Simulated assay, not measured.
Amino acid sequence: MTLTKLRICTFNARSLSSQARFAEFQAEVDKIKHDVIGIAEVKRRGSGRLNLPNDAVLLYAGHDNKTAEGVGFYVSPHLKSRIAGFNAISPRVAEL
């Protein structure tokens, strides 16, 4: 796949810790032309990777013991195979 333009945007999710909030986020994402979305205020415990039903992937970093702060990346299905790594540095900083 040749990628000529990479569409990166940011999104303040205000929480992705519940199924309802995650569904709202997914509905908003469907309206955005994107390849990668940097997400603030993920508010999920720990760090991890979620493979989503729409074939996208969510990588996130949060606190181990509370649902506060947190950052993440939402990667489109066509780019997920190109993820070389994810480094959760802190609940405020991560690199993709």
Rank of each mutant, 00 (worst) to 15 (best):
G62Y: 03
E41Y: 10
R45C: 05
S15M: 07
G72C: 04
P77I: 06
F86Q: 02
V93H: 10
L52D: 04
G38E: 04
D35Y: 09
V75N: 00
N54Q: 08
N87F: 11
P53R: 10
G48F: 10
Q19S: 14
G46E: 03
N51Y: 07
Y60V: 01
C9K: 06
P53T: 08
A23T: 13
G72E: 01
G46M: 04
L50D: 09
G72P: 07
E28P: 01
R49K: 15
G70N: 05
G46R: 08
F22I: 06
A23G: 04
T10K: 06
K5R: 14
L3T: 13
A56V: 03
P77Q: 13
L79A: 04
G46P: 08
D64R: 09
L3C: 12
I83A: 01
T10W: 08
N87K: 14
T10F: 04
A88M: 03
V29C: 11
S81G: 15
Q19Y: 10
R45S: 00
I39N: 00
E28Y: 05
E69A: 14
L3V: 15
K5G: 04
H78T: 06
D30C: 13
G85I: 09
F73I: 11
Y74T: 03
I39L: 13
N87H: 15
I83K: 07
R44P: 00
K31D: 08
A88S: 14
L59P: 01
A61E: 00
Y74C: 01
F11A: 00
F73E: 06
T4E: 14
K80W: 00
A13R: 04
K80S: 10
Y60H: 07
A61N: 00
V29F: 02
A20R: 13
A61T: 06
A88K: 05
Q26C: 09
M1F: 11
T4R: 11
S15H: 08
F86N: 08
L79T: 05
F25R: 01
E24G: 06
E69D: 14
V93I: 15
R44L: 08
G46S: 07
E95R: 15
T67H: 06
G62S: 05
L6E: 00
G48S: 02
S47D: 12
A56T: 09
H78F: 11
P77E: 12
N65L: 08
T4Y: 11
K5E: 13
H63F: 13
Q19R: 12
G85F: 07
I89Y: 09
L79P: 10
I83H: 03
S90D: 10
L79K: 06
T2D: 13
A13K: 02
N12H: 02
R82L: 15
V29Q: 01
A84V: 13
G85K: 11
